[in-house]
Computed example of a mutant assay.
Amino acid sequence: MPPVVVAVVVAVVLVAVAVAALRVLRRGDLGSEADKATYATLNRASQAAPALREGLTEDAAESAARHLHALLGSEGFAITDTDRVLATDGAVAEGLGMDAVATVLASGRAAVTRDVGALGHVAVVAPLVVEDRVVGALVAVTDDATANLVRATTEVARWVSSQLELAELDASRARLAEAEVRALRAQISPHFIYNALTAIASYVRTDPEHARELLLEFADFTRYSFRRHGDFTTLAEELRSIDRYLTLERARFGDRLQVTVRVAPEVLPVAVPYLCLQPIVENAVRHGLEGKAGPGHITILAEDAGSECLITVEDDGIGADPEQIRLAMTGEGDSDSIGVGNVDERMRTVFGDEYGLVVETGPGLGTKVSMRVPKFTPGVHA
Rank of each mutant, 00 (worst) to 15 (best):
A7H: 09
V9I: 03
A11Y: 06
A11T: 14
V19Y: 07
A21T: 08
R26T: 15
G28P: 09
D29E: 07
A37M: 01
T41W: 01
L42K: 13
N43C: 10
R44V: 10
R53Q: 00
T57N: 02
A60D: 09
L68V: 09
A70N: 00
A87E: 14
V101W: 03
V101T: 09
A110P: 01
D115T: 03
L119W: 04
G120H: 10
H121A: 04
V122T: 12
V122R: 10
P127Y: 03
E131Q: 06
V135T: 12
A140I: 00
A167K: 02
L169F: 15
A177R: 04
V181G: 05
I188V: 05
S189Q: 02
T198G: 15
T198C: 04
R205H: 10
T222H: 11
S225Q: 12
F226S: 13
T233N: 07
D243K: 08
E249G: 12
R252L: 07
R256K: 01
V267R: 03
V270W: 03
P279V: 12
E282V: 02
N283D: 14
A284M: 03
L289E: 06
E290Q: 15
I298V: 06
G306I: 12
S307R: 05
D316L: 09
G317C: 14
A328G: 09
T349W: 08
T361Q: 01
G362C: 06
P363C: 08
K375H: 10
A382G: 02
